[in-house]
Design a protein around this nucleic acid. Structure first.
Lengths: 331, 331
DNA sequence: CTGAAAGCGCTTACAG
DNA sequence: CTGAAAGCGCTTACAG
């Protein structure tokens, strides 16, 4: 709706129509901070409705220094794990009445930095960062600007900013123990290219849990790269009998590579994955995973923005038994 | 960076330090609209750097009526098809120097309306909407507010707002023809619960292409529901020999259901899917799809915001031959 | 080429 | 309980 002039309706228009001041209109639109007489309130509400008044949040933000917007920097928006995390962050923010600005760093430290700069320029009320590069403590820029920030899933452990992540140690131990219970002495591990971040941590815990008893495999984090690795290994008969994949994307690549090479899962190679994003329940065969509590993680990170405190205890990722490990699938 | 007082650095601070006016500082920060003497420009730039000045985009937005932010309303952020679309929209917007506010409607008309309201209140410069409910022309609210909008993938055909979508007619015809070429006389179709939006259109085109020669199946749009359908059909031996799935999510559910039921794909049931999101290349087996040109679609929708015109021609979704239809996979 | 000043649409002390 | 007015940090005619 707009005034006859075609100009958007402002507070002043409503005040004029209701025969009162802009202060009073503001008080009724915001339910405070001063009381308003019921009769006046009614007049204001009626005027606002008649004119189709929609408050300008930008003007409000400039004056009150609260934009109602929080920025989320994602390492990789195309990865369903991060996609699910983003969805949960949006929902947690909606619970606080906040809108979400989202930006994708595509694993580039430079883009990550650029996004944080732009979000701060946009005067976000807070920043959630799933670090693309944990060596660059971009949250420090937020702190300097007085903007609360939290890392989610991955972030520099040494910095001042809290890092919310699942209990990866426990998850890896569960995964290895479960494959052992299926009778596998050697449990291989499919790691990323380098051992950084939470995925690097998973690799270390696996080594501690298996001693010298398992093969270390590496591939990029995409389905395509894990798929290619398995096909290559299949050509020489070197595919392990049991495997823990560092991420769901890699596990899904293992499944498609094994399928293409004619290697049955779990018969020829048993697989357990460590993310547990929603997708993992509907692969062929269904993936046994340690299910990261994404909703809890997202909520913890968002809550940290509004009530600053130390990093909360890392929530556990329970083992979800499905078919890929060798368990019978429930019907 | 901030002033000694701990207050954020403003244009006025920079002007004071550079010994000039705020107008001139604004001219150099924005490279216009008035010329500035080179020497003055240097002084301003130096002062800004020394103080760590970061322009307040909110203040700029209030004055200039340009926020630099565009809103994206998504029908379902957890669906990789929409996730990939969102990623492309973000990238296209970055090309125009815009940030992206994102909101998830979860297929609810009410939430979709609420998000558009909030985005308009946030004074977005434009709105891209993948409609959750094409019966409710929410873009009309944007038009009233003078904000450009475009529908992407799904939107009301009758409205004033352009709808960008792929050429679904051609895609379905290609899919059916390809399965026919593999020797299947009967080509079934897995549709959604109701025939609305582009997916409903696909169903109609399939019927036109097959006449009475194929079975119509229906399930919800989630992997889980398609998975359950196939298991149910398998129990009675009613799984078709060849199937076109309306969406990737359903096709992936078909794959996992068939795997669980011991039905080989493509041997027992050949599958072609109509989305072609990135995921579809790494399923087991890899999905043959008609690959929607998501990047082109996203770019078209975004460009429409900045240079209004009629809906562009629907880009085609080429058939991508992989394993699930019965083709040999390239090594 | 530069500066003084108005104004974008709100919120909020302050005075009544 | 209500109103007149200052001010958030910018941009941009306007005058010089």
């Amino acid at each position: 709706m707009s005034t006859p002039a075609g100009r958007p309706v402002t507070l002043a228009d409503v005040a004029r129509r209701a025969g009162t001041s802009t202060a009073v209109v503001s008080y009724v639109m915001n339910d405070g901070p001063r009381p308003v007489a019921p009769a006046t309130r009614e007049r204001v509400l009626a005027a606002a409705a008649e004119l189709g008044y929609r408050p300008n949040r930008i003007a409000r933000a400039l004056r009150s220094r609260v934009t109602g917007v929080v920025g989320l920097v994602l390492a990789d928006a195309l990865n369903p794990y991060f996609g699910a995390l983003a969805r949960h962050v949006e929902r947690a923010l909606a619970g606080h009445g906040r809108l979400m600005l989202i930006g994708n760093a595509d694993y580039s430290a430079e883009r990550q930095r650029h996004l944080v700069e732009r979000f701060l320029a946009a005067q976000v009320d807070g920043l959630v960062i799933t670090a693309a590069d944990a060596d660059d403590d971009v949250a420090a820029m937020a702190r300097t600007a007085g903007v609360p920030a939290a890392y989610l899933h991955n972030g520099p452990a040494a910095g001042q900013t809290p890092v919310v992540a699942a209990d990866n140690e426990h998850a890896v131990e569960e995964a290895v123990a479960h494959l052992r219970a299926h009778g596998h002495r050697d449990v291989a591990f499919l790691a990323g290219p380098r051992d950084t971040g939470p995925v690097g941590r998973r690799r270390q815990v696996w080594r501690a849990a298996t001693g010298d008893g398992g093969t270390l495999l590496r591939s990029g984090y995409s389905r395509a790269e894990a798929d290619a690795l398995i096909r290559r290994l299949a050509a020489t008969g070197d595919v392990p009998r049991a495997l823990v994949a560092a991420t769901d994307e890699q596990a899904i690549g293992v499944l498609s590579g094994a399928c293409a090479a004619g290697l049955p899962v779990p018969g020829r190679v048993a697989v357990v994955s460590l993310d547990g994003s929603p997708d993992s329940a509907h692969t062929a065969p269904a993936l046994t995973v340690t299910g990261q509590p994404l909703e809890t993680m997202a909520r913890q990170a968002v809550d940290l923005l509004f009530t600053p405190s130390a990093s909360p205890a890392a929530p556990r990722a329970p083992l979800i038994r499905r078919r890929s490990c060798g368990c019978e699938e429930p019907r």
